[in-house]
Design a protein around this nucleic acid. Structure first.
Lengths: 240, 240
DNA sequence: CGTCGCTTTGAAGAATTTCAATGCTTGTGG
DNA sequence: CCACAAGCATTGAAATTCTTCAAAGCGACG
């Protein structure tokens, strides 16, 4: 067993310790060694490369170490519906657990490093490490909560509210990683944002425009600065 | 172990792949028998009585035996957003697992009998019954999938598609319970449907009207007859 | 009988989509 | 090194869908 507290002992994974969404957190130090066994590290993915496709058999879940990933389901007519964006420290791939095959396709949005957490190993360890098991169930439960917040958002909110909510969400998630919550580069295109939020590209573009006029953000293409996080937050949660 | 529906790979769940909203809002206990050990029965709830409130500490999950339940989160402004309807045989309450307290309030839509599945028991049994553990994780995973299908639906679909999807969903879920998939009484009001689908009451009413004109359904208040299930299915999954 | 809760219907208004066109970057081959 | 294509972002104007506002109908229940 390696002495490292992070999956493969490199220093690049230090952020794993900070993030509530990253797996090692719920484990005691003594368990860490065991976890090392579970993790498999792959080579970095390039933009547009996929982690798994719809229908691929479920092998386990994945953690984003750097970069970003989108998950999308395929509609009856072949169009894609993005169901989530995953930032560093976050875990995706649960969707395959129920039926043994993935319902989503997961694709790198930019150059991205991921860790695999194989299902069989996870299963074994669930017996010997009750904490790990609980932790994983908590992670799933949290994803459930996130999706439901998203449902609420899509159900009731205007275009501006949706975009505000996404920006705030990204900001919060970056903050957990000790990254700047106010200045960042979006890993996804306007079209992808629109797809995710149930709006057209044009609408996204216009909303970004309005936000800039209102001095809520500064945006240069994908480089975003949140100028009034507070107001964005209010905007996203107020409901009319 | 009885032959279950989807979880163990029987072919009976084909429509799950066809319909974006299939097994729509909730999940199914594949084998109620397995659960008997863990279950605590409560007294039936009356309409508007709650199973748990937002913020209540998580004690476990619940299965609907008869009647129907809605789960809803509370927006910043105090309005409610319905996140799911649960019909007989379906399990709800996972939302509390992540943080130890529920993010939703669960309310009976009509006179409803539920079973509690206490968390501590579930935890003990997770060790001794790996099957049960896997099963629960599968159920959670499935709820995730359902929520994501719902996301897709809300993101992209017109009012008619949403309503069609909900009707088809309910139909499929009733069918699984060996109840009539074409004639049923909706447990929820138009307002609740609208809330769930992100539409106004008036829009729901008008869509029901249009569906009747088109001979897709017959509706007398909450008593619904699906006259053209096939077409509704197509409508809900076709994307333009 | 009258009120309350729920549903329906109409007409006007608002927000977003659609269609169409243009500009800006980036990268690639000549 | 330039030119051109491809992908992404922006902008305008018209069309559409859904919401909002207003009013009325219907049933159940005290």
């Amino acid at each position: 067993m390696s002495t490292a507290s992070c999956p493969n002992g490199t220093t690049s994974c230090q952020n794993c310790r900070m993030n509530p969404l990253c797996l090692p957190l719920a484990l005691q130090v003594s368990d860490m060694g065991k976890l090392d066994v579970v993790i498999e590290r792959g080579k970095p993915l390039q933009r547009r490369e996929t982690v798994f496709f719809v229908g691929d058999s479920y092998q386990g879940v994945y953690a984003v170490r750097s970069g970003a990933v989108k998950a999308a389901i395929t509609n009856a007519d072949g169009t894609e519906q993005i169901t989530g964006f995953y930032l560093p420290g976050e875990i995706f791939g649960w969707d395959g657990l129920a039926e043994g095959r993935h319902t989503n396709t997961a694709t790198a949005l930019e150059t991205t490093a991921i860790c695999a957490i194989p299902a069989d190993r996870m299963d074994e360890l669930s017996v010997t490490l009750p904490d790990l098991r609980r932790h994983f169930m908590q992670l799933m439960s949290r994803e459930l909560a996130v999706d439901q917040q998203m449902l609420a958002l899509l159900s009731k909110s205007s275009a501006e509210q949706r975009v505000a909510a996404l920006l705030v969400s990204i900001s919060n998630r970056l903050a957990r990683q000790k990254l700047s919550p106010t200045r960042f580069r979006l890993p996804m295109s306007r079209a992808e944002i629109g797809n995710y939020l149930g709006l057209t590209v044009e609408t996204i573009s216009r909303v970004f425009g309005r936000f800039q006029q209102k001095q809520l953000i500064a945006a240069d293409k994908r480089d975003i600065t949140l100028l009034a996080l507070e107001q964005l937050q209010t905007l996203s949660s107020d409901s009319d």
